[in-house]
Write a protein that binds this DNA or RNA. Structure first.
Lengths: 187, 187
DNA sequence: GGGCACATGTAAGCTGTTACATGATTAA
DNA sequence: TTAATCATGTAACAGCTTACATGTGCCC
């Protein structure tokens, strides 16, 4: 109970890589896990306080207003392993793009085309990002043991992004059959 | 304000296909949009009441305890178009599988393998479902105009599922390199 | 006549975001 | 010296789920 759920996992996980401040935990989650996870300050600080109370993290440096880094303890590592082994909590899906396309009849082909083009551009941007991260990881000498796992999640993103691109292309073609784009003659 | 956001869109969208009870709206969302959307009773009934107050839906049949179907009105259709044209509200990502794999070093190769196998089985189950729905849609004579759009969302699911399968296979192979499965000799 | 699916609604409570308040440190 | 960034925390609120209360109609 209390401060349940996966925020604890994410925070302990971040600290398992290296000790850092609460602020840095948020940045790490945003920048590194950002493609599949998110936490806000409003979650992180209370969670850190609770983890400190339970002895799963230790505060190093002054405790107030001045930057204090948090380090995971032995019991914290054990707790992390325990949390990771817990069954995955499915989040109810909420895909705004699909919702709009499903009711695309009301939205019209032109607006749907925009949505698809946007989705495609987004997927391509993400793909480029993943490939950059992948290169970076392969050159990184530290975290050798973690790297294999990190590469898996990056690869998942890349697969998903490529799938999104292919789907967008296919759907755009289908849309052209319903409503040929202007300047293509014939109707 | 009030009853903001996309619940209104989903409910109006469902009623745009055909009039139905609140109970049926929930079932439709669960069964038809279930792969990319979800709503609970606690959201649907207040939203329907609000939509009725605003004249976007009309209640047909007795108004209490006995089944009353809701039908979308002209203003409701206009409202739906307006809502669909609104920019997509991104939901903060929360992928429990990726979170676990990212910290896979603490979880161990064996547990990661289980997660991947589960994810793969899940993706294959979903893919089969999508192909069944696709066939069903192609045979359906009604909703001819909607069908093109509905097929797009089904196809998105299929693309994603295939990508997930391929990724799982690739990751399982990578895992075997770190930690060869038992019964393969050599260590 | 008992159980199940259909149907409507409310209330409690949890999770998480946003905005705010506050202050230290660093770079221009 | 002022602006930006780093840093910590809280409070208000939004959104959503779950559980509960209540009742009807149908089928075995």
């Amino acid at each position: 109970m209390a401060r349940a759920s996966q925020t604890e996992t994410a925070v302990l996980g971040a600290l398992s890589v290296m000790p850092m401040t609460g602020y840095a935990v948020r940045e790490a989650i945003r920048d590194v896990l950002g493609h599949f996870w998110s936490e806000s300050f409003g979650q992180i600080y209370p969670t850190l306080a609770e983890l400190e109370r339970q002895g799963h993290v230790r505060r190093q440096g002054s405790n107030r207003t001045r930057s204090s880094t948090f380090a995971i303890t032995t019991s914290g590592t054990a707790r992390l392993k325990q949390l990771l082994a817990q069954p995955i909590q499915p989040v109810p899906p909420r895909n705004g793009l699909m919702l709009r396309l499903f009711f695309g009849r009301h939205l019209g082909p032109e607006a749907c085309r925009s949505l698809l083009l946007e989705a495609k551009a987004d997927a391509e941007r993400r793909l480029a990002e993943y490939e950059a991260i992948r290169k970076e990881l392969l050159e990184d000498q530290d975290h050798a043991e973690d790297r294999r796992y990190w590469l898996m999640t990056v690869s998942a993103g890349a697969h998903t992004a490529r799938a999104a691109t292919a789907w967008a292309d296919e759907s755009l073609a289908a849309l052209d059959e319903i409503d040929p784009p202007r300047g293509m003659g014939e109707r």
